[in-house]
């Protein structure tokens, strides 16, 4: 960043990053629910696809304890409406709004009003019983999420603060895509080696649609195979929700954030390394060496990057250890 750009408070950077992550998280949950509600219409009556949603969110034990059996009603109540579950849509939007509220002076009014507006609207929409929530309200939130990104990109200077917003968004996307694939891949895999049922295509399409990737997949890969779905969602260089693409954009943002500062940042090294590996990775090697192991280690590495970001940029440092103004370049 140029040295004459406005300094960014550590606390504010932290809130921007989490505002973006929570918005993205809410949008992802909404997309999962929307796709699943549609999928139910095409499946045989005994084809319960609700438990996998809970698994994809990594919340099976908590869900079982609080709701018991996974049905449309209980899963929607949990993932969309439950204020005590911190990753429900309502909780995410509340957290996104609280973070936005704490940085209102840094983001343009348009952004704040958008986040505030979504929260107020969704709070009203979701006051109904779970069984009355239609796919439309989740579609509505997905569109609001896209609009949030649009408002962010179109009204906020692409300065350091904006890069922390983008960093949060991309980190969250990489994480969510990897979870989605991890769960669905192994659930659907047996049918890929066996004869296959008429529902295979439907279920794999649903995975792609859960990442808004069905149409873009068709354009580059054509027919649906587990190998290509995994390759597309992990390694496609151009699809905006592939893990590789998300990490590459996160690397770009982090590069801008650290530019001009001599400090060695652990987060920069960790994320850069991950980005390079994904670029060089080939889909068959990835699957041969074990997709689950690969995705598992990816999530651990994303967590490590998150912790390093915290240490490098968000945490308040002791002043005695400071290097006051460590810029290496002058004002431009």
């Amino acid at each position: 960043m140029a040295t004459d750009s406005r300094p960014l408070l550590s606390r504010v950077a932290d809130s921007l990053y989490w505002m973006a992550r929570y918005m993205e998280r809410a949008e992802n949950v909404a997309r999962l629910l929307e796709v699943n509600l549609h999928l139910q219409l095409d499946l045989p009556l005994d084809g319960n696809q609700w438990q996998p949603l809970i698994d994809a969110c990594g919340e099976a034990p908590l869900f079982k304890e609080r709701y018991g059996e996974a049905t449309q009603e209980t899963v929607v109540a949990f993932l969309a409406q439950d204020r005590e579950y911190p990753n429900s849509i309502l909780s995410c939007l509340f957290a996104a709004r609280e973070n936005a509220r704490s940085v209102r002076e840094t983001i343009p009014s348009e952004m704040w009003e958008h986040v505030n507006g979504i929260y107020l609207r969704v709070q009203e929409q979701y006051a109904k019983p779970a069984e009355e929530l239609s796919p439309e309200v989740f579609r509505d939130l997905r569109l609001s999420g896209h609009m949030f990104q649009g408002v962010t990109d179109a009204t906020m200077s692409h300065n350091e603060a904006w890069h922390f917003v983008r960093l949060g968004r991309q980190m969250e996307r990489a994480d969510k895509t990897s979870r989605l694939l991890d769960v669905k891949y192994f659930m659907l895999l047996p049918s890929a080696t066996s004869v296959g049922t008429p529902y295979d295509d439907l279920l794999w399409s649903a995975v792609l649609k859960s990442a808004s990737g069905f149409e873009m997949y068709r354009q580059t890969r054509g027919t649906i195979t587990p190998r290509d779905v995994a390759g597309f969602l992990v390694l496609d260089p151009d699809f905006p929700r592939s893990i590789r693409h998300s990490i590459a954009r996160a690397v770009d943002s982090l590069d801008v954030i650290r530019a001009g500062f001599a400090t060695q940042y652990e987060s920069v090294n960790l994320l850069g390394e991950l980005g390079r590996e994904l670029e060089e990775m080939d889909v068959d090697t990835m699957i041969r060496s074990g997709l689950h192991e690969f995705l598992d280690s990816l999530q651990l590495r994303l967590n490590a990057v998150g912790a390093a970001l915290q240490r490098d940029f968000f945490a308040l440092r002791q002043l005695t250890q400071k290097q006051k103004q460590t810029q290496t370049v002058g004002a431009d």
């Binding site: 960043m1 300094p7 960014l8 408070l9 550590s10 606390r11 950077a13 350091e160 922390f164 954030i257 500062f261 400090t263 940029f313 968000f314 308040l316 440092r317 002043l319 400071k322 290097q323 006051k324 103004q325 460590t326 810029q327």
Partner: peptide
């Protein structure tokens, strides 16, 4: 007086 920024303290 310093404020804590992403790139260290600023006066």
């Amino acid at each position: 007086v310093w404020m804590q920024t992403t790139h260290g303290p600023r006066r």
